[in-house]
Design a protein around this nucleic acid. Structure first.
Lengths: 337, 337
DNA sequence: ACTGATATGGATACCGGTACCGATACCAGT
DNA sequence: ACTGGTATCGGTACCGGTATCCATATCAGT
């Protein structure tokens, strides 16, 4: 095999025209069974693979949808992607992923790059986009679904939940369980806008009840178990009498839990821990961490669904799907203050 | 903005020919500063984005590299991807990811699909490919780097480590620490070929020492903490006097550790746990789980490096880079049987 | 002023497919 | 035999860029 076989080669080998070969391989319109077989065989024989570039340049459509997420080491986004895969199953479109590492310039570049592939639609994480990025999306003339958040104004459509409200709600639940002395431990809040929103919501609920965080600590690295351990240690050193720590997410909270277990601190009796996301890591010690369970797969699935229905011509601009995450107090459940 | 601007529009707006506009935007050859400025401005004005499909169809190259991994919910692969990103930094190539979910048919489809984008290179997880998939890669005429394994025969090049040997080595280390009654707990071994290889290596070392697994349990779901918990419970019920459990990886092992902590079983004194990968989840309880630390980012980085040097014309076919993972006994360190 | 080198711009021919429309063959009906 | 319909194919013109080669302009040196 010296040179990659093209459709013309296949057609020649099958003794038909390029057009007939093209139709035969795509299974479209009327081609005689005999020719379909001949073309298939020739393609097989030559190891013909097809050229997506030429095909979609010519047909002016592409079956590609771009998916932009900030991070993959946080399983949350891996689950969103898997939801997307589920949502597009059978629709013939194919997702292409891009990871921004929470870097806004990189995000702009990635989106621009994706647009240059002429995708049929785009799924982008977050609502808070820089002006320039937003313009890019507005001018793209393809359906754009923003995910994971609804606290803001989408370019086109969005699927997610309110982080502010979810912070408020778990705060209220914890207050309802009688907790009063709250600490906060978070990672990378300047980058993770949504974690910051949750903190705001949580704090707002505290203030409404005449309280506030007694102490706060922050790490600038990305969230991790290790960061959770050390933040918890810091926090409990500064303020040993806390009765609850709110973390920016479950990874950090799990680190806190592990620290407490080793330090012999009873969770949740001596100090309660609350995180966010309902991650499986927290299920290592069922119920010990209060959390907010978020419908990640569902978000991916619905986002994909919106893109698909947009491709079928439905108008999706303006749709905003708010899913409701669920507060899970774990072992604190049923406790009364 | 009614219609997407093309290069011709930009050229017209800038008062130059398509070619000059093309050259100006790519910064190639000599274009007068004045025209570069004019074209840039026109492009900006029109929100021109460029068309990757047309560009690479025309130039017959694509600076795309396809990356195929089995799974994203296992952080290992996310880290490999991040290593790849690092490895290609500055080289101008762009990675595109595909996830197979350990499904061989899906793998074939994804690879085929990627090839249809005319990528400049491919990075594929694993050496054990079905015949058909292998042929596809062999005929592709682009550099193919297979990662995560070296126990086998690569299509082109590979970067990884020996799973068989890594199983043997940790077994020997555990034997050296005086452990004798081994159990095995694994997830999805038929799908995860490499986990199966580690088990083989481990068992081989046991047999060489006149031992074998006392008891084995397997779950058919993908590895998870929850699976680790329940497998461990099963295993210790069947064989309460085990002094060491070897798990298919650290996720499962972490589940085991959590189970033991809650059940009041001292780790590693009463029963030692050994996993694979050196995942951060195991760092929640430092040293409690023996593991084999694998250079995941490094694998990604080197794989990307190989692709890049192939693109510069170097012959890479036949290169096989074996990295050496590191046995970490954790708290068992220094113990003597 | 003429020559050659250097810098810069454009015309043309593709890249590998597909849309669109017209051509051909074959057959039933009258 | 002729007409019209159906089924099946092929020719041509693109899609939006880039490679290649040629044309022109400019300028220093003699």
């Amino acid at each position: 095999m010296k040179k990659k076989a093209t459709l013309a080669d296949v057609a020649a080998a099958a003794g038909v025209s390029k057009m007939t070969a093209s139709r035969a391989l795509r299974g479209v319109r009327d081609v005689s069974k005999i020719n379909i077989a001949r073309v298939r065989e020739a393609a097989q024989e030559l190891g013909y693979v097809g050229n997506f570039l030429a095909a979609s340049l010519s047909s002016q459509r592409s079956d590609l949808i771009g998916v932009v997420v900030p991070n993959l080491t946080n399983i949350v986004f891996a689950q969103v992607l898997s939801g997307i895969s589920e949502g597009i199953a059978g629709s013939g479109v194919q997702p292409v992923f891009g990871v921004t590492d929470y870097d806004l310039d990189k995000e702009y570049d990635i989106i621009r790059n994706m647009l240059s592939w002429q995708p049929a639609g785009l799924i982008v994480t977050g609502l808070d986009l820089p002006e320039q990025t937003r313009r890019l999306l507005e001018n793209a003339e393809i359906p754009v679904v923003q995910i994971m958040d609804v606290d803001g104004d989408p370019v086109d459509a969005c699927v997610g939940f309110s982080h502010i409200r979810s912070g408020e709600e778990i705060a209220q639940a914890l207050l309802g369980a009688g907790l009063r002395k709250f600490g906060y431990a978070g990672c990378a809040l300047t980058m993770d806008v949504r974690a910051a929103k949750r903190r705001i919501g949580f704090q707002r609920a505290l203030i409404q009840n005449g309280l506030d965080f007694v102490e706060e600590v922050e790490a600038f690295e990305l969230s991790s178990i290790a960061a959770g351990r050390s933040l918890t240690e810091q926090l409990l050193t500064k303020a040993p009498d806390l009765d609850c720590i709110y973390y920016s997410n479950d990874d950090v909270a799990a680190g806190g839990l592990f620290y407490c277990i080793e330090a012999g601190i009873a969770v949740p009796d001596q100090v309660a821990l609350a995180g966010f996301n309902g991650l499986s890591i927290a299920s290592g010690f069922p119920g010990r961490i209060a959390t907010v369970r978020t419908p990640r797969r569902e978000i991916g699935k619905q986002a994909a669904g919106i893109i698909c229905s947009a491709l079928e011509g439905k108008v999706v601009s303006g749709t905003s799907v708010e899913l409701v995450p669920q507060v899970d107090l774990g072992l604190l459940e049923g406790r009364r203050g």
